[in-house]
Design a protein around this nucleic acid. Sequence first.
DNA 1: AAGGGCGCACTTTTGA
DNA 2: TCAAAAGTGCGC
Length: 778
Amino acid sequence: MKCHFYLLDINEDRWNDKPCVRLWGVDEKRRRVLVLAAFTLPYFYYVLDDGVDAEKIKLELESKARTALPEISEVRIELKKRLGRTRTALKISCNDTGVVSSYAKQLQKLFKGRATFEADLRLSVRYVTDSDLTPCGWNECEVQPVTLTGVKVDRAYVATSPPLTVKDVTLPKLRLLSFSVLTASGKGSAKPEKDPVRVIAVETNTGESKAFTCDGADDSKLLNSFVSFLANFDPDIILSFESNRLHWPYLIQRFKARRIRFSIGRDGSEPHTSMFGHLSITGRANVDLFDIAGSLPEVKIKTLENVAEFLQTPSSGKVTTIAESDRYALWSTELGRRRLTEHTAVNAKASLEVAEASLTLPMQLSAITGLPLDQVMTAAVGFRVDSYLMKQAHLIGELIPPRSEQPFFTYRGAIVLEPKSGLHDNVAVLDFASMYPNLMVDYNLSPDTLLKPDEQVPADSVNLIPEVKHRFRRSPDGFYKIVLSTLIKERSGISRELKEADPKSSRYKVLKERERAVKIVTNACYGYAGWAGARWYVREVAESAAALGRDTIDKTIKKAEAVGVEVIYGDTDSLFVKNEPNKIDQLLSWVKKEMGLEVRVEQIYVRVLFTEAMKRYAGLLPDGTIDIVGLEVVRGDWSDIARQVQEQVLNSILRDRSTEKAIERVRSTIGRLRAGEVPIADLTIWKTLTKPIEDYKVNAPHIEAAKRLLKEGWDLTLGDKVGYVITKGKGRLFEKARPYNQVRPQDVDTDYYMQNQVKPAAMRILERFGASEEQVGF
DNA sequence: AAGGGCGCACTTTTGA
DNA sequence: TCAAAAGTGCGC
């Protein structure tokens, strides 16, 4: 019989005394299924020197292996490629996953040979790489039913044929569960060894919602209720905000402290940390919405509140932030407890809504890269590319190199133009479409086409890169070119399908997000090539792409001048020009014809303002909204008061063209500040701890505040944001910084906020319009 | 365990 | 007093 299933999770196990992978999914009849697949045994390649008799080595190996390497089950001779060159390799399969890497090492000692490859791939990775199997997609294989105990699924099978991907973008009806956790402690951060969980709120996509609370010190009942709710609902995807960093670790510790088994996996197992620091729950996908927030560049400061607002989810307006330091006091009153419980419930509800609005992208990214859903968003960009490339490499028989520690070299990057400062009316932004990927394809930039400096070849058979003088073979197509062409083709295929799809249909939405996912992977390939951690790291490839980018933008600027298009600013692959459509058309068609690259008019600004700085500007769009780039308004490390005042200044100038109105707004802020009317929250400056506190070489305000928080019993770890306020007093700035929750209104150093926050933020803009500090009132 | 790249602005501290 | 270094967070 056939099993047709949507794949959700993959893990490793053994079956009939052999390694196998477990494929957890949902079938077309909405049954939860488990398919045991044992076709691919773990294996690695042993690459032979040129001219060596492979058969002889094979026989020798088989006889030696009988005693020295008893877990080898099969040796096969295969032709593989390494950087495009054909190699004879022995494919050595093993009966045990644990021995693969040690066997690879021993083999190199037993025989002389080139190297081993692919011994570092885990079986689940091996399986996705090798087979036609798509996570977050439909797959099909021949199966036989089996009876398994201790596994919570509707059907269990063992596969009797390799799986095949079924092209189908329909989504099965999945069960989603979101949760939010609230803790509170009388002193500092709540500690799982002693502080109970106060509230866990859960919300499901079938409309169930519950808030479990615990009034006293014993939260056993709450913890048990959470587990049984989970078991009853049996979710396919579990969602929460900042769960990998906060909720899961706390819950795991707390369950341990209470000696309760936290068994929520479909095989009864407990949550466990896995690759990329994510939390794995067997048979389900655990997704941290914080990681999804990372894929939304429009949301500058990644809070649930901001994400919900950006996605315009129904309860977005209701999400609030309650500072951890305020929670204990609130928890001590009946009213406060009600408020905290409600707050947690709203968070859970908002999390579910955010998930429903944003999960399609991660799912498509998972389908394309082959990384399971619970890993794909926690994995850094480079690892998504790695995973994608491994699948592609396998398809063309290219050996997968290991990830290794490599010496690291920086190289020159892109060009940024000095802006023409001041206000400009009617400005068009020209953008090269996928500039780096296209250059990589056009010039065949790839690890396997790069020539060594001393290699002699006919000049007309290579692409010589300007400035950096690297040379790449024009043929055959390199690995990157093959992969990028595949991605680009995939994208245009999706675009075609989109044109025929109904924009309101769910199919349209899936295709749209699939297109985005393909674009994400495509655009990441350039940075990947220059990342020392990449399996296919070749600095020259990235360096050449950057050099070609500079060359391209240079030539385009020269041509713009020649046809009379005024260039105002440019960064990497964009040019801001005076909007004169006829001349622009001329320029664009020249680029297309001469360089084979597509440039689009990406945006038109009614008015745009530049200071003298690069990467910082603000523009008024035709729809009346204001786009702010790089300036303090969009930076998370300035006080709200400074950001608000700058935003008001920009509004007055861009929308109303009124410097007077802008100055008036600033004066009013100064007045409020002097009168002590600005709340502490608007004066708090947030900065991230980017390394362990003891590693800092210099004193800094946020480090001083962090030390004071630690002394009070707060836990602070790498990646935490520290909020501080500058208070009155003597000494240097860092000596006057206090954690925001320890500051009373009368302590605030108003002068600092005047001179070092509001003034620079406002004057940065205003001085462009001739306003002096005195005139504004500083 | 935790990992794309480089270019840039800007504030504060440091040390000569 | 001042230039360099440290630190953060942005743009593309």
